[in-house]
């Protein structure tokens, strides 16, 4: 079967049944992608979707061999998910995931030299998640402006304090509104 051959070819690649995807170490990502692209049985010529996922550090429970649940701290990481399709063989999707080491200086190899479709999508991930793709020909912000500093799609992103008065504040906006009212100690501008 294809999947077995694939697993035999790349022993480092791990099947993740929960998400039906292959977890690929970043050292061999380009080799794996090149294999998928050129192998006559796969011929995954189209990289349809590239996207980032942010996983904060969390406590996870794992079942040991004796059936006991043990809780341990899982470090946070960023993850890039690739959806491959084969246009000529009409197969797919084949999903690869590639994880960074930690969230501080996330670096992954760029897949753009193999698949042009990743060019803008990797730029978008760089822009919104802050993953640096080494080997990308033109890595700069794409959706946010160049001077923007933070990475908005990260789960721990704090938006800048740019509250504008609105008549029906809720939740986070309400907190902001109250803070602002105390700070400014002046009536909101609509009352003026």
């Amino acid at each position: 079967m294809n999947a077995e051959r694939f697993a035999a070819q790349f022993p480092g690649v791990q099947w993740d049944a929960a998400t039906s995807s292959w977890i690929v170490p970043h050292e061999i990502l380009l080799d794996v992608a090149n294999f998928l692209k050129t192998d006559p049985e796969f011929r995954m010529e189209m990289l349809s979707n590239v996207t980032g996922v942010d996983r904060l550090p969390a406590k996870v429970k794992t079942k040991g061999e004796d059936g006991k649940e043990t809780e341990h701290e899982r470090p946070g990481y960023l993850e890039v998910v690739y959806h491959f399709y084969s246009v000529s063989r009409k197969q797919g999707p084949l999903v690869l995931r590639c994880r960074t080491e930690g969230r501080e200086t996330p670096i992954l190899p760029s897949i753009t030299p193999l698949f042009r479709s990743a060019e803008f999508q990797e730029r978008e991930i760089f822009d919104l998640f802050g993953i640096v793709f080494s080997g990308h020909p033109d890595l700069r912000r794409i959706l946010m402006w160049d001077e923007f500093e933070d990475f908005p799609m990260r789960k721990d992103y704090v938006e800048p304090d740019d509250y504008e008065w609105e008549p029906t504040p809720h939740d986070a906006v309400l907190v902001k509104a109250r803070r602002r009212q105390v700070a400014d100690s002046a009536p909101p501008r609509h009352d003026a």
Binding site: E45, S117, A118, E119
Partner: peptide, 20 residues
């Protein structure tokens, strides 16, 4: 080939002759 490699889809891809 470029169309497929660049992930172009829809009428753009089919105008380049790819049956997808």
């Amino acid at each position: 080939d470029l169309a497929v490699n660049a992930g172009v889809t829809g009428p753009m891809l089919r105008a380049s002759g790819v049956d997808y």
